[in-house]
């Protein structure tokens, strides 16, 4: 789970930011930009787009007029929520995905309408293959998988960032993991351990 940290330093930095303290913006950027960038890269599949999303997220913070409510959660979760919304908008604008968000299990309703060459982002081949497999998972499953698996968000934190309830997070996570596993298997990865299989069968 996400480490429990004192949110007060963030609140203090945000207050100083609102008062025009440039060092506070710098401190907030240093703390939050890399995780937001990693999220955006995995969610949108492109470094340039991820940069734009990080930039827009901080611009939203700079321009926010009372939208961030410290009683509703941490600043980090708020920023992830903004980045998530920007990512969704960018994906919708790219028209690469046709969504049917209301049918949560209808993965078949998602289709890559105009496949584009995948931008290579990671040097490690296996990791890059995993990233490519993750990119085939529909965005509303993918975002939950990324937040939970890569950023150690709890169900509640992922629910807050995505604007959905905890039960939906849970079902999307299960479904997203299953779809990711299928995609990995198609790429010749994530083969179950045969020894573990044999041991389980023997137990049965």
């Amino acid at each position: 789970m996400m480490p429990l940290t004192d949110p007060q330093p963030d609140f203090d930095l945000l207050r100083r930011l609102r008062e025009g303290d440039m060092a506070a913006l710098s401190a907030l950027y240093t703390k939050h930009s890399a995780p937001l960038y990693r999220f955006a890269v995995l969610q949108c599949g492109g470094a340039d787009l991820a940069h734009d999303i990080v930039q827009e997220t901080f611009l939203a913070l700079m321009n926010a007029k009372g939208k961030f409510d410290p009683t509703q959660g941490s600043l980090g979760n708020y920023l992830f929520g903004v980045a998530r919304n920007l990512s969704r908008r960018a994906l919708e604008q790219s028209r690469r995905w046709v969504s049917n968000e209301h049918e949560d299990d209808a993965a078949s309703n998602w289709a890559d309408a105009s496949p584009q060459p995948m931008e290579r982002l990671l040097a490690n081949e296996t990791a890059e293959a995993v990233r490519a497999a993750l990119a085939t998972v529909p965005p509303h499953y993918r975002e939950v998988v990324i937040l939970y698996e890569m950023h150690d968000f709890s169900y509640a934190e992922a629910a807050g960032a995505c604007g959905i309830d905890i039960g939906t997070v849970r079902s999307r996570l299960f479904r997203g993991r299953a779809l990711l596993l299928k995609a990995l298997n198609r790429a010749g990865l994530a083969r179950p351990d045969t020894k573990m299989d044999a041991a389980m069968k023997q137990e049965a």
């Binding site: 960038y37 890269v41 982002l121 890569m150 299960f174 596993l181 990995l184 994530a190 573990m196 389980m200």
Partner: peptide, 25 residues
């Protein structure tokens, strides 16, 4: 997921975690 499949998936996700840990804007 069944435990063996979940373990296989987690192994691959570990690789992705390690490879993206240093990504910076």
């Amino acid at each position: 997921l069944p435990p063996n499949e979940a373990a296989a998936l987690d192994r691959e996700l570990d690789q992705l975690r390690a490879a993206t840990a240093d990504l910076q804007p």
